[in-house]
Design a protein around this nucleic acid. Sequence first.
DNA 1: CGCAGATTTGAGTTCCATCAAGGCGTGTGG
DNA 2: CCACACGCCTTGATGGAACTCAAATCTGCG
Lengths: 256, 256
Amino acid sequence: MTPGDDAYPRIRLYDIRKACSTCSLRELCLPVALGREDTEALDHIVERDHPLRKGDKLCRSGQPFAAIYTVLSGSLKSSTQGENGEDQIIAFHLPGELVGLDAIGAGRHHSTTEALETTSVCKIPFSRLEELSRQIPGLQHQLLRIMSKEIFDDHELLQVVARRSAEQRLAILLLNLSQRFGRRGLSRTRFRLPMSRHDLGNYLGLAPETTSRVFRRFLTQGLLSVTGKEIEFLDLPALQALTESPSAPPRSSKQG
Amino acid sequence: MTPGDDAYPRIRLYDIRKACSTCSLRELCLPVALGREDTEALDHIVERDHPLRKGDKLCRSGQPFAAIYTVLSGSLKSSTQGENGEDQIIAFHLPGELVGLDAIGAGRHHSTTEALETTSVCKIPFSRLEELSRQIPGLQHQLLRIMSKEIFDDHELLQVVARRSAEQRLAILLLNLSQRFGRRGLSRTRFRLPMSRHDLGNYLGLAPETTSRVFRRFLTQGLLSVTGKEIEFLDLPALQALTESPSAPPRSSKQG
DNA sequence: CGCAGATTTGAGTTCCATCAAGGCGTGTGG
DNA sequence: CCACACGCCTTGATGGAACTCAAATCTGCG
């Protein structure tokens, strides 16, 4: 049952790199000048976890924090819960990305992470990683670096949710997903959205109906074609133009 | 000109503790079992910076990251910039709080921090702090811990901006500020807002006019009294009730 | 005292959430 | 292979919250 035993043999960093060309574990380690020994040390703390089925929880809000994860295949969503049970999705996780960083240090998860489809992840026990990072100076810096990135991403999301129209929000998210798919070597213009319209809307601070309507508008305007969860960009420049606040009235900030 | 020279002598951790009873530097160090030597080591890397006047920038987006700061007196706002010059305020910083954490690791500031009034801060060169944190195991963990807190706060803000009404947003912010003032030993029910209505609105994703109108509504309902930037809570329970989504229509998430 | 910026107030408009109903698609059982 | 049912998605109609524009008032400051 526990990962790391015979049924779920340890996998090597080498394998992870093969499995996922832009794996965050690579992101975590690559900029660091790791010697052969260091690499092996890292190899040995990585464990493969059970594959998750759609709806399975990787971790729940309030649970003690023990490990961070990197997505090998599939996808996940993380959400925080308001006191009323209404939740707010704060991130989607695609293959090659790290999960659970917001729990570092607090010792406890603040969010619940759930599989959007059949998903396999790779577990990195944090205590061991932290221990290791004391021995490998660059690794410690990498940890801080990645958390910093997380903060930056959150700020970008905030900016989007606080100040942009529904169309801009969706366009920005689609382009963002496009980039992330592209980085994995998949098509940047044609891909499958792993999340429901509901999740999409929740993440962007929109009602699901609005999300649906915006898709229709994009379709009508010839910006993209939508078939269920499959989408294809037909007019990338126009979508990017949307992003740059073409119709966005300059709110707040400064208005002379 | 450079801080740390004779004109601005180094100040000691001891002084900082006196200057600010809930200083984040304490927050940073206190949970760590610091010996006398460690404490002195920290003392020596802390510098007092120039006092800032209203509107002065502590750091700008894009600048190389060199230090984190802790607020001794006054207050600051941090904002990110969209490509159009419209900015989004992501945090207000009151005395005793840390500034610049989002830049750790990226080596570059992602946000611009500006004084809302005459403000004095205390500079902690990061390279030295990092170096020190390799020698003091607990300190490293504290850094991660505090960054994690930052991420958590961002998620809370996102939840507020994405899902709550204008009244709820303002109520939540006012109560939050109340707590933070209270922690410093000031009144929790009567204080001065250091930021403009404009900034208030920007932070909450609202137009300044809306902010003003919500204040009026609160006034009319007898929830608080407002005189310019001075505010006083008159009906704390009612404000807190607002916070708990009483009139908040359960949006998105789940609606049977 | 007068200016500039901040705040408030008003009127009108827009965008999006809500409510409600219908369509599509997938999985299950016959 | 087909029928049915459930959930997800779409579409329509409507109302309301918040934004925009515009102007008056207030505030601080030189």
